[in-house]
């Protein structure tokens, strides 16, 4: 397995309840997984745990055979080689679009950097905007820059937190298709959180849903809308 998450438990320091509870998930290399679930069910939190931005109370995380988190180990976020698009983008306000995207390319050869920046900007249809500052962009444009920024260093594992929520339908379809092509071409493993089943179906190889902080296999949950409303037994992922 490329990504192995076992019995992950976590609660924020200022809340009494656990947000993530015995979460299990295995992902193969190159697989694209989508996570669905109600608002507040802990989807973003799982991504943060994967990144190393939060430290789990229990459980282990292995990525590409490396132990990222267990009882003895904790690999710092910057050393995990994961790319992420945050739900609120977090574009650096004091840098231009170009500088934002170039930020993660420090391991690249100097001469390759601007070519790479231009490449990913083209991918998200933002090639002409490289000199702008984030606050001079619309919400959807900011989202695309955030996507470009995370793609730029070509991470082996890419996490996307509702990456298309601010895009109009046409653009959404276009970008998601191009994204899928790139991911498949580069063999990037990807986990993305979404509320949109269309996205999920179009992009994901497998769907997982979250409830009460644990994960459930989407296929076991339902395959069609009618079935979903009947709330069948859930198959918990082990």
């Amino acid at each position: 397995m490329y990504v192995e998450i076992k019995d992950l438990c976590f609660g924020y320091t200022n809340s009494k309840e656990r947000t993530v509870h015995d979460f299990n998930l295995d992902i193969e290399q190159g697989e694209i997984i989508s996570i669905l679930g109600e608002s507040g069910s802990g989807k973003s939190t799982v991504l943060r745990l994967l990144c190393g931005l939060e430290i789990p109370e229990k459980g282990t995380i292995h990525i590409a055979g490396r132990t990222m988190t267990d009882d003895r180990t904790f690999v710092a976020p910057e050393k995990r080689g994961i790319g992420i698009v945050f739900q609120d983008y977090a574009l650096f306000p004091h840098m231009t679009v170009y500088e934002n995207v170039k930020f993660g390319l420090k391991a690249w050869k100097r001469k390759d950097r601007s070519r790479r920046v231009q490449e990913v900007l083209e991918l998200v249809n933002m090639g002409d905007y490289s000199k702008r500052y984030p606050h001079e962009l619309s919400g959807g444009q900011q989202q695309r820059i955030a996507l470009a920024r995370s793609l730029a260093p070509a991470p082996e594992l890419l996490l996307l937190d509702e990456p298309f929520s601010n895009l109009d339908a046409d653009l959404q379809v276009k970008i998601r298709n191009e994204l899928k092509a790139i991911l498949k071409q580069t063999g990037t493993t990807c986990i993305f959180v979404t509320h949109d089943r269309e996205d999920s179906r179009a992009l994901a190889d497998r769907m997982v849903t979250m409830r009460d902080g644990a994960s459930y296999d989407w296929d076991s949950l339902c395959t069609t809308r009618e079935e979903e409303s009947q709330k069948p037994e859930l198959v918990r992922l082990k």
């Binding site: 976020p77 994961i82 574009l91 420090k106 391991a107």
Partner: peptide
């Protein structure tokens, strides 16, 4: 969030 974004882009 900016700090986290930066660390996810490989800066310590």
């Amino acid at each position: 969030k900016y700090t986290e974004a930066s660390r996810m882009l490989g800066m310590n």
